[in-house]
Amino acid sequence: MNNDIHGRDNRAAGRDFHEGNIQVDQLIGRDVLNITIPAFQATDSRLLVPAQRKQLNQLVKEVADISSEEGFVIWQRVHAEIGVKSIEEITVNQYQTALNYLQTMLDRHRESGACKALMHQLLKKTPDNNDRQKLYEYCHIAFGTRHLADLTKSQLQQSLGWLCNEQNEVEKVASTTPGHLAPMDLIRAYPKELSCIFIIGGLLGAVLF
């Protein structure tokens, strides 16, 4: 049997296999499976421009200042994070990763510094052991722990606000209690009452003596 196709029939058969735009459709029963190839996304392998290098160096300096760590130690962490040996190897495509890493590190150190400052204020305002125990009890009830180091920044701020309110209330009570007034303040606060006491005392003394 001769299967050769000549002339126009040969050209028609060729078009079944060779087309300028190839689309593969595979029929399985009644289902149609369309095979598509995703577009290739090229990465930007250019080295950093001066403005990007300056931004990274500035962030490293800020982290070093707030953490008291050496700049080269921080750079080593950045290099390890993005898989390079020096800033000279960082590409434009890796810039955002390095930037985010340094910004997260800076935010974490700022949060830690703020927490230490708040703890210092709380301890400074509670030199008396009874007052400090009341503070610990409040933290235990409100946040489930007596340890200030376990509290977040917002929890420490809330504790400081509670402590200030408590101490203000104590001062108000103390200022309105006569027994805590100095003699001159007592005379100014109760002039009529004291005058009556002196007059009655003088009359009693005259009668008795």
Rank of each mutant, 00 (worst) to 15 (best):
S86M: 07
V63Y: 09
H120S: 13
A117G: 06
T36N: 13
S112Y: 14
L47N: 04
S86E: 07
Q52H: 03
L135Q: 03
N57L: 11
Q96V: 15
P127V: 04
Y138L: 06
I28H: 11
T126Y: 00
Q103Y: 13
L33A: 02
R46C: 01
A117V: 14
P50N: 03
A80P: 00
A42Q: 10
T97V: 15
G71L: 02
L118C: 03
E62M: 05
Q121Y: 01
N21Y: 06
L135I: 02
T104C: 04
S67M: 03
S45F: 06
Y136K: 14
Y138H: 10
C115Q: 15
H18Q: 13
V78K: 03
C139E: 01
V49M: 08
R77G: 04
W75R: 06
R132E: 05
L48W: 01
Q133S: 13
T126P: 05
A98L: 02
D131K: 03
I74M: 01
N100E: 15
L47C: 01
Q96N: 14
S68C: 09
Q26G: 10
E111P: 00
Q58S: 12
V78D: 03
L33D: 06
N34E: 09
E81K: 14
L33Y: 06
G29F: 01
L59R: 01
C115M: 13
A142D: 00
A114I: 13
Q96F: 08
K124G: 12
N34G: 08
I66G: 00
L99N: 14
Q121T: 05
T91V: 06
L59S: 01
R108Y: 14
A117C: 07
K116T: 13
L47I: 05
T126R: 01
D31W: 11
R46W: 04
G29H: 04
I35F: 12
R108A: 14
R77Y: 00
R132S: 04
R132Y: 04
R53V: 08
L33N: 10
P38V: 00
Q26R: 12
L102N: 08
T36F: 12
D128H: 03
E62L: 10
V63F: 04
I141N: 15
P127I: 07
L123P: 00
E62N: 13
N57S: 09
Y95A: 04
A39K: 12
Q41M: 10
E111Q: 14
L47H: 05
